[in-house]
Nucleic acid binder design. Structure first.
Lengths: 147, 147
DNA sequence: CATTTAATAGGAATTATTCTTAATAAGGAA
DNA sequence: TTCCTTATTAAGAATAATTCCTATTAAATG
């Protein structure tokens, strides 16, 4: 069964299981914030999640939304589309290459293509507009941060 | 000749040419800010660039650094590693897929793999640490923004 | 039901980035 | 060269996103 056909209730069930596995409490806030992201296909931002959850939990705070989104991310229940780093960083190297981003310390490492490796642009991405740049982000925890 | 072997002076020469092509002025600030990014392989952030350029141009302002980095990006002279969007956005869809980010309006579009297409993780990216997630960012200007 | 403590609400604080406005200087013309 | 035009800049205020602080609440366990 793929994620697409999984119902929201099933997804929430797996969140609850995940919380249990990790010894985390199943709070209303956690469930409702996850529900909002999981039931939307428009990649909502924190403010959007806040506004929507507020309908069901009128006392929800911004801090809870941010904190919970970060913890859901740690749990691998949701993913950040962009903005993994706290601030913008720049690169003038025009050779085709990719980046390893450390989600802990924010360090950026260059990944230069090895023999035979190159990323292709997905054919169907052109339908969205004019492509200017393609970048593969490999996200993880760098060796320094693992110790 | 690849970018790697190109000297800083050559890179600055091509910046000047680019400015001329585009009718943009060749200012000290523009040159020094570019020099800083082009001569570093550590993907500096705006503050780092500011601190370093300040040694040569003590009156440089933060605003100029931000504005110039953005214009160098428009000119395709430098690239933003991350933080293309003004705020973080989230996704709970676990099916493997990629994202088209509109650099103008910030909209995010899902790119689902077509038949036969899949991104591979570059073999040599593992040496940097433990991989948690891989995301291909296709950056461009979406159809809405082109009109 | 009582206890423990993870999680939360509320709002202040912080950080990155952008805006505003007057002054400056690059590039073209005389 | 010198003068003009206007793109670019400096300075610092303003904004926007996110995080921190602290007292309070409520989930899970026994």
């Amino acid at each position: 069964m793929n994620q697409n056909t999984q119902s929201i209730d099933d997804k929430i069930e797996s969140l609850k299981q995940r919380c249990q596995e990790l010894g985390m409490r199943v709070t209303n806030q956690r469930v409702e914030i996850f529900r909002e992201v999981a039931s939307s296909c428009e990649h909502p931002d924190a403010e959007t999640v806040y506004e929507r959850v507020k309908h069901r939990l009128p006392n929800i705070s911004f801090d809870t939304v941010y904190r919970t989104l970060a913890s859901l991310e740690d749990m691998n229940m949701i993913f950040r589309v962009d903005n993994l780093l706290p601030k913008a960083r720049f690169d003038a190297d025009k050779r085709p290459h990719n980046h390893f981003l450390c989600i802990k310390c924010g360090e950026v490492y260059d990944i230069f293509p090895e023999d035979g490796y190159k990323i292709e642009i997905p054919e169907n991405s052109k339908k969205f507009g004019e492509i200017k740049d393609v970048n593969l982000q490999v996200r993880g925890i760098c060796n320094k941060c693992r110790h």
